[in-house]
Nucleic acid binder design. Structure first.
Lengths: 348, 348
DNA sequence: AGGGTCGATGCAAACGTTTCCACAGGTCAG
DNA sequence: CTGACCTGTGGAAACGTTTGCATCGACCCT
């Protein structure tokens, strides 16, 4: 037997297909008795509605797409975690597009996958889209929300990277540091990633405001991983003579890599070297890392809830809606400055 | 305008719907000219086929479900990465079910999500299913492959956890250690997770074979994270008098946590304490961690390729196939013993 | 030249729901 | 007592493809 269809349920319950459909999907105008009948018959037959048929007829997919650069990195997997939990609870599916570094793959995801009228909404994390690309996406009339990346014309959840980076740097300056290095992210790694630039700008702004010069050789970049930063920090800290007294790393992972490198050289953190990170990685606690905590998981959950609300309220997606498309809000997600034990006054 | 449908393309190209469909999906029996005509018209209109309609009519979804316990952990995100890349290249979508610890969610994923005739296949990672659950899944006639978990009746990719754990332990024993502690995974954390037990069994077997006694207080468990293991290892290593000379951790993350704790106590690795892990975490390199390398990403990719092959070869999924369901193969994925610098002979 | 083949094409029937519309009774107010 | 209205129900038309089947030339072979 092919799996039971709604027709089988209708026959068994002695009702029409239409009534069964209404009963099972909890619609109004069904008598209690019919509802029970339908439910019982469905249970007995193990009926599960066909998703495709249902979506095709109703125009709703119960499916949200999530585009991330690299599932392997802490920030992104945290966001995925938050999105996933929210969607699962709401009965939505999550389609994951882990685009990675490959530009061709990025292109194919945008062109082939996202447009297939199969997603009710899209969440894009740290993805910078060209105007044409955004237009293309909006043309399918699906709500989009961006996390941590600017999506002109779409809603966004983000933190003010430049300002927070400035705050972090000012924390070091406030402690008395002037010889501060900055560990930024590889620019060429991913063109969809303007975050390193923003944080670096914040760093430079704070330094300039304090009248400190920024040595070019003290601005190095790594790949956002602990191990990558570790390697770079080793070279940075190798020369004992002229060594920075503090490092601001553009992510907690890279800050941790820096701490590990410092330990290898016998440098004590924070007595010999202050290190400050940014993100709120769970591992930061082990290292007593001072950082700016951004709740990545919460950002993901918020994005999902925002979309769910839009989808729930609106009519069929893809249909002309009575209410105008919800205004593209640009929310700043709250952060928390977390002073632990990796920063202190510079050595005398 | 509602987005262009195949009908619009057909009109524009001056062809029938049927021919356009065949042309665009690369089927045989279409003249080169028609194919070009159809393609051109489709491009001009920005036509993207409706996935639901296509799936409904053809029975193929081009969508694979992936169930993981926790996207946040290294092993799982590595697997996801591998699966994702393989599927994306093949033009398949990946639906992610990050079930987490919540048994209710696990239940709803199994019952509500997986059965909706919407997935061509399912990959389950470290998920232990009851017989009834497997039966339920197989009833929808979708191929399943399990990674790192035993799925009776389905294909499996796994490593021999017990044997490898034994090998790791024997490495320590071979170096001369007899006071060996084992850091295992929390059992209650996830009932779908028999891996800790297997690795622990391997450890005990090796110890027994060597005639070494296993102190109960030297078998402690943590949550598989660096920070969790760090906390546990601190208590384990706190008492200077009777301290193990080596630790076998059930994962690299926990091994790293152990190394960090050891360093906190001024213990040198490997001179004062040998540590061996298991998994092949990228971070292991930074710590010179001796471990057994299992290519998690590769396992994910392999699983995806296996499924793609089955799907490509077979007829419509969900249909009675001429060939019998492919035999449930149980493959052991190759591993590599990676001796680095975290293990040495015990201190005298 | 005629029958047979074969490639290219179009028609229309699925696929399995949701939902619009019509309709039957029953209730209620005037 | 009658018309207006509401509730519950079923018939049937979407939804937008894929694909089996029939058709129609063109081409080849004897």
């Amino acid at each position: 037997m092919g799996l039971a269809g709604i027709k089988d349920v209708a026959d068994r319950a002695g009702l029409s297909i239409a009534t069964v459909s209404r009963a099972l999907s909890g619609k109004a105008n069904v008598s209690t008795k019919s509802r029970q009948l339908a439910q019982a018959a469905a249970d007995e037959l193990g009926f599960v509605p066909s998703y495709h048929a249902s979506s095709l007829a109703s125009g709703r997919n119960h499916n949200v797409g999530l585009v991330v650069p690299s599932i392997h990195r802490w920030y992104f997997s945290s966001v995925v975690d938050g999105v996933s939990a929210a969607l699962l609870d709401a009965g939505y599916d999550l389609t994951l597009y882990n685009v990675g570094d490959d530009p061709a793959r990025r292109q194919s995801v945008l062109a082939d996958f996202l447009l297939r009228k199969r997603l009710d909404a899209v969440i894009a994390v740290s993805l910078v889209l060209s105007e044409a690309e955004i237009k293309q996406l909006l043309a399918v009339r699906r709500p989009i929300v961006g996390i941590g990346g600017a999506l002109a014309g779409a809603s966004t959840i983000r933190i003010d990277d430049a300002r927070l980076a400035r705050t972090a740097t000012e924390h070091l300056i406030g402690l008395g540091h002037s010889r501060i290095a900055h560990l930024t992210g590889d620019a060429e790694l991913n063109r969809d990633f303007k975050l390193p630039g923003l944080r670096q700008a914040g760093f430079e702004a704070a330094m300039a405001a304090a009248g400190h010069t920024v040595r070019p050789e003290w601005q190095v970049s790594a790949d956002f991983t602990i191990q990558g930063a570790y390697a770079r920090a080793r070279s940075l800290l190798a020369t004992a003579s002229e060594r920075p007294t503090a490092v601001f790393a553009a992510s907690d992972e890279m800050a941790i890599g820096t701490i590990l490198a410092a330990r290898d050289f016998g440098l004590r953190v924070p007595q010999d070297l202050s290190v400050i990170g940014m993100d709120g990685h769970e591992l930061g606690e082990v290292f007593g890392l001072t950082t700016i905590n951004q709740d990545a998981r919460g950002q993901g959950a918020l994005a999902a809830h925002m979309l769910l609300e839009t989808l729930g309220a609106g009519a069929k997606p893809g249909t002309k809606r009575t209410t105008p498309a919800p205004a593209a809000t640009d929310r700043e997600y709250p952060t928390e400055f977390l002073v632990r034990s990796s920063t202190a006054v510079p050595p005398v």
